[in-house]
Design a protein around this nucleic acid. Sequence first.
DNA 1: TTTCTAATTTGACACACGTCTATGCAGCAT
DNA 2: ATGCTGCATAGACGTGTGTCAAATTAGAAA
Lengths: 128, 128
Amino acid sequence: MSKKGLSLLDVSEADAGACCAPLACEPLTAGEAEDLAPLFKALADPVRLRLLSLIACHDGGEACVCDLTSAFELTAPTISHHLKVLKQAGLIDSERRGTWVYYWINPTALTRLSALLRPRHAFGAVEG
Amino acid sequence: MSKKGLSLLDVSEADAGACCAPLACEPLTAGEAEDLAPLFKALADPVRLRLLSLIACHDGGEACVCDLTSAFELTAPTISHHLKVLKQAGLIDSERRGTWVYYWINPTALTRLSALLRPRHAFGAVEG
DNA sequence: TTTCTAATTTGACACACGTCTATGCAGCAT
DNA sequence: ATGCTGCATAGACGTGTGTCAAATTAGAAA
């Protein structure tokens, strides 16, 4: 089932110019949905959305944890927890350089989710 | 703050041809993140992802609840609960016609989320 | 070594979430 | 009216999640 998930995630690339977004082409299988849900769950928190956004917008495409922590009125362990959730979902990656740990976005993961949600032809004609 | 949320959600349309995706342009404000998180939370469940997909792929762009319930090994109240979550998030809409209730996708909401996640220029150059 | 700082991990707590059974409501057909 | 069917709601139960304080690890500097 993890293999199915991977193939589903891959599809959005090979499929980038196809007729419609995966979500609108044919129904997700149970296995595909099980693999996709954790990605959206990782995005389903305002703190994590802001973290992702802060990292994406930071100079050089990466941000130190200390920069991120100072942007919230939350404790360091809480920020660390959210970063861990994002990383385990594959949305970000990190590296330790000396004293500091730097995080950056995984654009591939975001692109895949974006393509999945794009309701192009299938019901782009239904409304707008 | 709800006004902020709406403007954020609107941005992805006016912004469709702009330099980069909202997430990558400038950091989300706390209010924007608070407004966006519930949308991703609604997507953060495998059953709801399949429901959304089933509705989107159904003939005529809409599906009866009875069609949806039969696709899962879950009770009708559980399906009803998930449909309510999706509807309250604005991802689907519904109408009763006689005995049956029909659901359809709100493509605008999906398009906005899709645009938000698209990491175009900002870090499209970083990897691929 | 020791000390200091950056970041993570652990454990605990309150709250939210997914699922079920039981019940209620709306519409159609007797 | 009564009964039947499709769907939603209410309440309960177990599990998962976000947050914190406290403890731990990793590295730099003295």
